[in-house]
Structures are given as C-alpha cells and as structure tokens.
Design a protein around this nucleic acid. Structure first.
Lengths: 195, 195
DNA sequence: CCATGATAGTCAAGAAAATGACTAATCAAA
DNA sequence: TTTGATTAGTCATTTTCTTGACTATCATGG
C-alpha cells in the first residue's frame, strides 16, 4: 500500500493534476517511486473518495480541463500513520542482475550489449538528478541547504536516486570490463570458446 | 516474467529443492532476486511442465522427501533468449523513500526511528554479503578471482547487492544526521516546533 | 511428554502492478 | 494539411506479488 502514500507525499508540496503526477512518477523523474498513469488515476480517485485528497477543476481554454489535487488534513494524518508504521526492507529488482547471475552459462556478447545500453541510461539519469539537485538547492552549498533549506525531503530522496544510478553505472561498467577480459583468451586461462 | 528466469539462473550451478530455493530467495540471501516460497513452488511446477527444468525425487529417511530440480537444454535456451531480450530499467521501491519525501511534513522522530532500524538491517546484509564473497573467491584476491575464477556471475551479482546495501546504510545515516540537526533549534533557523 | 523449530510443500484469496488499447482536444512542424 | 507530439484522462485484462492459513515429519530441548 505504498503507492497511495507516494501520491500523498508527491502532493504535499504542490497541487498537481493526474497528468502531472503521471509525468513525475514515470521513469524520468521517479526519484522516490514509480507508477504508471493508470495506477495513478485509479489511486487519485480512491484517495479523493476516502477524503485524503481534494480535487478542484481548473478550466483551461487552450488545453483540456484538468483537476488539481491537494492533500487534506485526513491525508496528512494517514501519511503520519504510515510513517510511524514498520517498514519492510527493499530489494533490487533488476532483470540485469538475473542475466549476470547466469553470465557463466550464456552468451557474453549479448549480455555486454544489454549492460552497455544501461550504462547510457544510468548516465542520463545521473545528469538529470544532478540538474534537479542544483535547481533545488539554488545557490546554497549542499550541506548548507540540507541544514537550513526548507523542504529537504525531496532533496534527500533525489540524493538516494543519484547514488543508486551512480552505483548502477559503476557496476555495469565493472561487469562489462570483467566479462570482456574473460572473453579474451589469455595465457593461463582457457578461453570462452574453449569450453 | 523475470521470476522464472531468476529460478533458472539459480538452478544453473546446483540442483536445488523448492525449499532450498525458497531459502535462497528470501530476504537473507536474495542478492539478485526476491520471492516467496509460494511463488517459487508455483513457478517450479510451471517450469517443469514446460520442460525447462526437470525434477527428481530424492528419498530421505530422516527428513520428508524432496525434489531436486535442474535446468534442461530448453531451459538454457530460454535463459539465452531472455538475456538477449531488451531490458527495462529498474527502480528503487522503498517505503522509506516515500517517508523521507514527506519528511518536511511529518513527525521527525518516528522517521528517524524507522531509518535507524534500517541501518542495522543494512549492516547485517553488508556483513552477510562480505562473508559470501569471501567464501566464493576463496584465497584469491578479488580481481584475480574475477579474471580467472570460474562462475563469476553469482560473485558479480553479490557485489551489486553489497554496494546497494552500503549505499542504503550511508544514505540512512546521512538522512538521520540531517533530520536530527534540523530538529535542534539552532541560531539563524527556526526550530521544528516553531512552525 | 510437550513445545519448538527446521524441513518440505500446498491452497486460496486478494492487492498491486503491468499491458494494451482508447477518447479527445490543441499545437507545431513537415 | 495531415502527421506527430503534448495535454488530459479512462477502461479492461492479465500477470505478478503478497497475505494468511494449512499438512506433514523429524529432531531437539526442557
């Protein structure tokens, strides 16, 4: 039941429409949670029905009308309750880990290709997060912002996202290096093709 | 559809029973995927039905009988196909990120408590992974093992798990530090209670 | 003798997430 | 001028994951 709380958390700082939320939760900027539009619209409906958020229609001339949502007092209480509740640990869930686990038994070249794709992707996210952090902290140094800035929550989660993507990139790179080195027949070790 | 491939990957190096698999996939050692026993038994049944694995009954006197599974040729082909297929990027999915995202709006003390719990948990996993890695590489240095050892797949995934848990621990610790510092009323900045 | 915990495995139900297709408007560029 | 992109949102189906309970046997400790 974390999606609902992720939505509540996202609506704390600004009123957003379902569409804007969907953008925020898509792969690009999903620094703290990821969800598809369908899930979000469904969740917004439920949350509004339960009185944890309220929506207001915003009429637009040039664009289709939209509904902006914000968290109610009851919503804040629910978040508070959620925060106090026990947490269950998180796991990495990455296709690539499964593939690398099988690395000794499958074709190395395709695996390296997949890893290389992901290096690019990870780097893109790193750049994005870097830019996001710079925007958030303005002209303050990071430590200053964390100490004195208002709204450090989003900054902290973004830091985690940045660190995660950096670790991804580094591991992808190292794994590629290892697999490539092993693929080259070197003295003292039989080559891949030799098996 | 990654669970089935995770199971295949896990069965590559050794024959395992459903029960043993369940152990391997539980929170303790799930370095590359996580799943509950129910999922695993169901998946094993499906995989056997489709001929991607074969099971053999092992009669035991002192314990209930068990079925050991191993990957068939078709299973290996399926893994190969999976490895070649496009990967979708992975995201962190952590309750705590949601909670920290809302940090500026909820009670800091309970949040710090949750974070502190996780520091302990992360440290335990770090120690576990460290030990696992040492066992896998034997008396070889890491770089030597990665270059010359057989079966580097599991080692590499374990490395990723280790790095992930280290990053978790570090982020939890930093977040606790930041939240604690901000909670203390300091000159030049209004205290939490002041709002 | 009884409680416990480990081994080994199963069933059913429900919540959450992913997939795929769809409406409908407006704007910008080819 | 029609194609594609963006904004805004919905529906239906399937897959996957989680929760919770349940059956057995054997070993160990108290």
């Amino acid at each position: 039941m974390a999606l609902r709380h992720a939505v509540l958390a996202a609506l704390l700082d600004e009123e957003l429409s379902g569409y804007q939320l969907a953008k925020a939760f898509d792969m690009g900027v999903a620094n703290f949670w990821h969800a598809l539009p369908q899930q979000l619209y469904a969740e917004l409906a439920k949350l509004e029905h339960e009185g944890l958020i309220t929506g207001r229609e915003v009429v637009q001339e040039t664009r289709p009308n939209k509904r902006l949502f914000k968290v109610t007092g009851a919503g804040l209480d629910e978040l508070e309750r959620f925060t106090a509740a026990a947490t269950k640990p998180s796991f990495i869930r990455d296709d690539l880990l499964v593939k690398v686990q099988a690395a000794d038994h499958v074709n190395t070249e395709v695996l390296v290709a997949r890893l290389t794709e992901r290096i690019t992707f990870a780097q893109a996210k790193i750049d994005l997060f870097d830019a996001l952090l710079r925007t958030m902290r303005g002209d303050l140094a990071e430590e200053d912002f964390l100490h004195r800035g208002d709204r450090v929550g989003p900054y902290l989660t973004c830091l985690r996202g940045l660190s995660f993507e950096r670790a991804n990139r580094d591991w992808y790179e190292r794994t590629v290096r290892v697999l490539r080195e092993r693929a080259v027949p070197s003295p003292g070790r039989p080559a891949d093709e030799g098996l």
